[in-house]
Design a protein around this nucleic acid. Structure first.
Lengths: 142, 142
DNA sequence: CAGTATCCGCTTTGATACTG
DNA sequence: CAGTATCAAAGCGGATACTG
């Protein structure tokens, strides 16, 4: 029994990141709430996190990479493009050298914070229950 | 650009199902709300749907298979086991022949309906916006 | 800086067949 | 009925290298 539909897509999560680096964005993100069995997720693996990162204002590509802990440019690009396509954020490219691109939440994207917060609140309230359930399970079937 | 972080896990969704069959459970499920780019998902692919199926009372294994539209027994078992482990539902086996097993939401599982409904409400309210965004995108980059 | 372009691989899901 | 056992196929994200 290796499959965990409750929280498994994160299999390839990379932790190694050059620490000591500044984190311009608040790392307190939605998906950080539930350390066990993420109850609610949004779109792909990064969508919710990106929304949290943009909550307090527009950010640049590289700025997003920092709090997203080593997300590869390919995946970040894909995620941003998808969110742009869905009207969750806007992409503004400034014609400068070096290039500058800023991503900003749209009203639609921002409106997602509400249900996200509902999920977050659920996590806060029921995390102890989840932990207890997990413990009971492991105690019964070790 | 083939990957869509906003709505891709459902890639292998099978539609072919012997119709004419009765559907004992209400097919109006959370994940049915957003026809485009599912905004909020719960755990694995089936978790939210299973919760909806159990909303109005306990159901048997085979009963769940009907509204879940051809989910394979393997995957259904995995999902149910995971949810049982997380304390979202209980599994009760009756020692009869033929065997009977019933699955029922716990209070914890039922409490998830609240954030789920929040996501559902978001979908209802903003589906037009999503559609418009998608249309605009396709109009610009055909 | 802000990406593209390839290649890669585990995880998750599904198909099919078989039991207690 | 309620699963388990295998096998097979994507899915989705990641590593690495390379541009305008």
């Amino acid at each position: 029994m290796t499959s965990r539909p409750g929280g498994s897509y994160d299999g390839g999560m990379r932790e190694p990141y050059p620490d000591g680096m500044p984190e311009p964005l608040d790392p307190h993100m939605f998906t950080d709430c539930p350390p066990v069995s993420p109850p609610i997720r949004l779109g792909g693996k990064w969508t919710a996190k990106i929304i949290r990162c943009l909550e307090s204002g527009p950010r640049r590509f590289t700025e997003l990479q920092i709090p997203l802990r080593g997300i590869t440019p390919k995946v970040l690009t894909e995620s941003l493009r998808a969110m742009e396509r869905d009207g969750l954020l806007t992409r503004t490219a400034y014609d400068e050298i070096p290039p500058r691109v800023e991503y900003e939440l749209t009203g639609l994207g921002r409106s997602l914070l509400e249900p996200m917060n509902a999920g977050c609140e659920w996590s806060r309230r029921h995390l102890p229950d989840l932990m207890r359930a997990r413990d009971a399970w492991h105690a019964a079937i070790p």
